[in-house]
């Protein structure tokens, strides 16, 4: 099932859903004719779209809104924070091309601070599916709630079959004594392949698909304390405010002690280009991840 098929099915069955877009139709091309008045394209107006979403929610609708991640989060931020966050309306944000997925667009389009920004709004839920399979397993539960949410849309086709999603819960792929990789979204696949390679090379490495950044699965983290010697947070996001920060906040808050290292973008945008070239250039391809993680494990021992 694709994103669009899922959205169509849910919106047809439940009149409370309204599909909105700021002229970003890539994944909702077939919906106008199916939804009629419940499909609203406001044009290239992320601010007006988010404000209008609040107005629709005020009248009892649940808008699912679409725009490019950078503009949905940053151009419209105050509208989201003020018109949706303050009244806690169930507006469901679907952001396209987050993180590395903006490939050749350049820094204007790079949403590599979106997790930090969105989790800064009280009550906003933040999710990042690993691929299309994960996406369609996660979205029904996310859309069902009365909370505002932000989802990094990721329709990558991977082989991995994910487990059933439970709101606020991570997916534990494997456990590891030497290190446990925590990752989310598009970085899942390369992290998964790196984990397999590292295990073949004799390292006992685990992997967690975090899925839900906010609320964060604190129980999952607690279970790692004393069981793994190192946590490696891998994310196509700035070092500030993303998964590495979330893990650090939780460890400090709970007085838990585990060394944590980050493989993230340290206060800089990434070099734009073809997706695979970008990932390799930035050191997030499988071979680079294997080297970086094995080095971190050896330094930690």
């Amino acid at each position: 099932m694709t994103y669009e098929q899922l959205l169509q099915e849910i919106a047809i069955n439940d009149q409370q859903y309204v599909v909105m877009t700021a002229e970003n139709r890539a994944l909702v091309r077939n919906l106008p004719k199916v939804l009629g008045d419940r499909f609203i394209d406001t044009g290239i107006t992320e601010q007006t779209m988010m404000g209008a979403a609040a107005g629709l929610a005020l009248r009892g609708r649940k808008p699912i809104v679409h725009a490019l991640a950078a503009f949905l989060t940053m151009r419209a931020f105050e509208f989201t924070r003020t018109s949706i966050g303050i009244p806690h309306f169930p507006v469901k944000m679907s952001s396209f091309i987050p993180g590395f997925l903006s490939d050749g667009n350049g820094p204007t389009h790079q949403a590599v601070e979106d997790i930090a920004i969105m989790r800064g709004i009280p009550g906003m839920e933040v999710f990042a599916p690993a691929d299309e399979d994960d996406l369609v397993k996660m979205l029904p539960a996310i859309w069902e709630t009365e909370n505002p949410s932000y989802v990094r849309i990721n329709t990558t086709a991977n082989q991995y079959k994910h487990s059933i999603f439970e709101l606020g819960k991570a997916e534990i792929i494997s456990e590891g004594k030497d290190a446990t990789i925590l990752t989310y979204g598009f970085m899942f696949e390369n992290s998964y392949q790196a984990m397999l390679s590292l295990r073949e090379a004799g390292f006992d490495v685990g992997l967690v698909n975090v899925r839900s950044l906010h609320p964060f699965d604190v129980e999952m983290l607690k279970a790692l304390v004393g069981k793994t010697q190192l946590i490696v947070a891998i994310e196509d996001h700035f070092l500030t405010g993303g998964l590495f920060s979330i893990v650090a906040e939780q460890l400090v808050t709970n007085h838990w002690s585990v060394p944590v290292k980050a493989i993230a973008l340290d206060a800089r945008w990434f070099r734009p280009g073809r997706l695979l070239d970008v990932i390799e250039f930035e050191g997030f391809d499988v071979a680079n991840l294997v080297t970086r993680i094995s080095t971190l494990i050896q330094e930690n021992q």
């Binding site: 419940r38 007006t48 209008a52 979403a53 107005g55 629709l56 005020l58 808008p63 105050e78 018109s83």
Partner: peptide
Amino acid sequence: FHAGSLGQLPAVAIGVALEIRI
């Protein structure tokens, strides 16, 4: 609706008007 941040409510009003149309 709460207000204070100028330029916020025209969009909210549009959303309500759209919902009424639906």
